[in-house]
Design a protein around this nucleic acid. Structure first.
Lengths: 182, 182
DNA sequence: ACGTACATGTAAGACGTTACATGATTGA
DNA sequence: TCAATCATGTAACGTCTTACATGTACGT
């Protein structure tokens, strides 16, 4: 995709909340923030080293048990300033959704293609499952709060993802019912 | 992103419509299909060579003027079969929208952050412009037709993109009006 | 003692963008 | 003749995923 190192800013943002180890950051990408961005540990560890070289973060060593060394990274003043100017900077480029399913639709030339109903039903199942996951997540994090004071950003993007999935699903439903002789 | 060579199938799909040169394919990605997938010529030309090696496409040489050689590629039987099995295969992976703006929102911790209104207004402008473009495109391609017989797939994904942008915009509008003392 | 989770790294390769490089055609 | 467009390629580099590789800690 060749972004401009967005991952770096995500890590800064997470470390700004509280210091973390590389392993913990990996867990965050697998769970906490994984709905919106993915990163494997093989990408995270080298990046942490580069960011420390640049002075954006530092680490201290914690020993667990007798031998195991954990590197707990914290954000530096310089890092905090880089994070802040990223958030404040314009975001002129739109997310280009590269949706394989939608691409396939492009090459279905005819409305009566026999494969369409099955294809759409498959996507409905996938997006319904995802919507359920997101709803459970909102319930877990925010309960029935309307607009929470803290974690406002997290609330915002969860709400955004929920709205998007609801729209995607209702679009799929609508297309399915509008198909000829279905 | 490490997809499974989706670009290859898009090229097969385009060549299935009619034979094209690498240059023409590049133009298609810049205009026709550029709303949904991007590819530069530097990615297209080497891929065409690889696809020809695999027997998915062939080319014939056209001479324009006195010297200029154009390679016009067509899909082979093998290519048509690969395209068809791609379209027919399950699409189990969801599009992971990596939306830089939404990521920034995640790190805005407080609802009264002074930067929020400006950030949201910027995105409204961008998405409004995009929506206008898509609407002009639909008007151009399909006029006031409701559900066209031919180019059904193109109609579908344009409709999908339009719906998505409308939803994105209304979400942004809603968040803007709900901000404290705006 | 054994399995799972914790913890950190490197290597190889696919995908994608920007830049480099060259030359022909066409219309003003 | 000059500029824009047509036309095809390679190089360098950044991002991202999958696989390789190693070892510790902790609970049962």
């Amino acid at each position: 995709m060749a972004q401009k190192n967005i991952l770096q800013y995500i890590i800064l943002g997470l470390l700004d909340q509280e210091p973390r180890t590389g392993y913990e950051l990996t867990q965050d990408f697998a769970h906490e923030i994984g709905e919106f961005w993915q990163a494997q540990h093989s990408q995270i560890y080298p990046l942490l080293a580069r960011m420390e070289e640049q002075g954006l973060i530092t680490h201290s060593v914690e020993v667990a048990g007798t031998k195991l060394e954990k590197k707990r990274y914290s954000i530096t003043t310089e890092g905090r300033s880089a994070l802040s100017s990223w958030v404040g900077a314009p975001t002129p480029t739109m997310a280009t959704t590269k949706d394989e399913f939608v691409l396939k639709l492009y090459f279905v030339q005819r409305a009566d293609d026999a494969r369409l109903p099955g294809m759409i039903r498959e996507q409905i199942a996938i997006h319904q499952e995802w919507l359920d996951h997101l709803e459970a997540r909102r319930q877990l994090l925010f309960g029935d709060e309307n607009v929470p004071q803290d974690q406002f950003g997290h609330y915002l993007i969860l709400d955004h993802a929920l709205t998007r999935e609801q729209q995607y699903l209702s679009w799929l439903d609508q297309q399915l019912t509008q198909l000829p002789h279905n």
